[in-house]
Simulated assay, not measured.
Amino acid sequence: MHTAAKTGSTFALLTDLVAGGGVVVLSGAGLSTESGIPDYRGESGRKRPASPMTYQTFIGSAAARRRYWARSHLGWRHITGALPNTGHRAVAELQRHGLVAGIITQNVDGLHQAGGASGVVELHGGLDRVRCLSCGERSPRHALHLRLAAANPGWESATAEINPDGDAVLDDDLVGTFTIVDCGGCGGVLKPDVIFFGENVPRVRVQECYTMTERAALLLVLGSSLTVMSGYRFVRRATELAIPIAIVNQGATRGDAEAMVTLDAPLGPTLAALVAEVAT
């Protein structure tokens, strides 16, 4: 639809659009890479194979659940220890100045909220919660972490490469020694309160995001390749309604042809510069 101009004039156009307010942010994993959390499809993702857990595999195999929780138990400390970066804080600052009207995030790390943002819709859920597949009870991830630590003494000393969804790469033999725990209330299977690949986002949540998008003066995509339809559908909806779309990402995205502005640049410095222009 539109061709991005050179960086200077593109940033100026982005500034003008954001300064008008009514911005709805759609963020992806690329916004959190500067906090040390890798992504699947950006620069860090290209350096290793991606093998995310699928919903069908998780519910269909006790061995798969053991593998997931063993890896996630080690990876959780990496996620919970991550701090919001300049980009997260910039989005929160734009919100405080009344320019950002809503935030939809595909991330499950909670860093938008930790950076000061409010009213964030977590499209794919949050790793800080656990849900029982039998009774539906939700509980804090920290409580499960303590239970798993008690059931698996010595695991805290293990080290491993960390994947984007907070799990660690472990040898199968080591995984086989891990003890999982069930729901403390009903004994049911526990699952992180996130949307796995192959699982549907709850309809109510999707509709909330559609409503937010439809009311936007600008849809601002930050750090998402938009490869997955889960997020890309909101770009499509904005396009249908002739709502301007701006994308800041490192690398090409699925929505570039539909965007008025595309800026291939690091998120933190770019958003900090944006705040300096429109929120001071």
Rank of each mutant, 00 (worst) to 15 (best):
H2W: 07
H2M: 12
L13N: 13
D16F: 00
D16K: 15
D16W: 02
V18A: 11
A19E: 06
V24S: 03
S27Q: 08
A29F: 10
L31V: 13
L31K: 05
Y40V: 08
R41N: 11
R48W: 08
A50G: 15
P52N: 13
Q56W: 08
G60C: 09
R67Q: 12
W69Y: 03
A70D: 01
W76M: 04
T86P: 05
G87N: 03
A90D: 06
A90L: 01
A92F: 07
R96H: 14
V100G: 07
V100Y: 00
Q106H: 01
V108G: 02
L111D: 01
G115F: 03
A117N: 08
A117K: 08
V120T: 11
E122K: 12
C135G: 10
G136R: 12
G136T: 09
P140W: 07
R141Y: 03
H142S: 13
L146Y: 07
L146V: 11
G154A: 13
E156C: 07
E161T: 15
P164L: 06
P164H: 13
D167W: 02
I180H: 02
D182H: 14
G187E: 06
L190Y: 08
P192V: 01
F196A: 05
F196L: 14
E199H: 09
E199W: 04
P202D: 11
P202Q: 11
R205K: 15
R205S: 10
V206C: 09
V206R: 11
E208F: 00
E208D: 12
C209R: 03
Y210N: 14
R215W: 02
A217S: 14
L220E: 02
V221L: 08
L222A: 00
G223F: 03
S224A: 14
S224M: 08
L226F: 10
T227D: 11
V228R: 05
R233G: 10
R237N: 09
A238S: 12
L241P: 09
A242L: 00
P244K: 08
N249E: 07
T253E: 07
A259F: 04
T262W: 01
L263E: 02
A265C: 07
A272H: 11
L274N: 10
